[in-house]
Design a protein around this nucleic acid. Sequence first.
DNA 1: GTAAAGTAGTTTATATTATAAACCAAAATA
DNA 2: TATTTTGGTTTATAATATAAACTACTTTAC
Lengths: 94, 94
Amino acid sequence: MLRELDPLLHSQLRLGIMSLLMNAESAEFTYLKEKTNATAGNVSVQLDKLSEAGYISVEKTFNGKKPLTTCRITKKGIKAFEEYVNSLKDYIKK
Amino acid sequence: MLRELDPLLHSQLRLGIMSLLMNAESAEFTYLKEKTNATAGNVSVQLDKLSEAGYISVEKTFNGKKPLTTCRITKKGIKAFEEYVNSLKDYIKK
DNA sequence: GTAAAGTAGTTTATATTATAAACCAAAATA
DNA sequence: TATTTTGGTTTATAATATAAACTACTTTAC
């Protein structure tokens, strides 16, 4: 039987963000926006959702006088990502 | 840069259906419904979408006097599935 | 020095999507 | 012959993704 896919991760943009964060110590808002090719609004909304779920931590500081949003994946996020990937394998294996 | 994920395939139920069809010569409506654990209405709607996209073929016949809906993946569907899986690998590799 | 444009986002509105509930027709069962 | 079951389809609703509009501040150009 096919397993459930975590709906929070089964979204192109959120999965992209999580994927980037799995491969980096941390990432800035603008970096995530560029790499995912998404609009700022969309990135902002999805970061909130991931943050509320405890999958990432979001730190808002300043770079000189410009706002700077830095994101990191949490342990919970890593676990959820790994579980998602495992479940997904059922779907994509031949 | 992360590639686009075919939105027609990036849906749990449609991906599940396509996955089952990738691994079977053909599959009946009831089989797909059972294996995906979805409601009949949901399966019906998603089969229509996959069929309209040309990813699957749907044959409606009768098994004695009961309706029988048989689905098969098409060449186009196989190609789309394989492309989807390839794109997805960018997201899930470490 | 002030108007215009750019940066780094957030909030809100809309369009799409997934999903289930309600429904239909026929067959099997009680 | 009433009731339940089977095999679906249609329709209504709830959730989601997404972009447009907006905010606040900074830099640049005139």
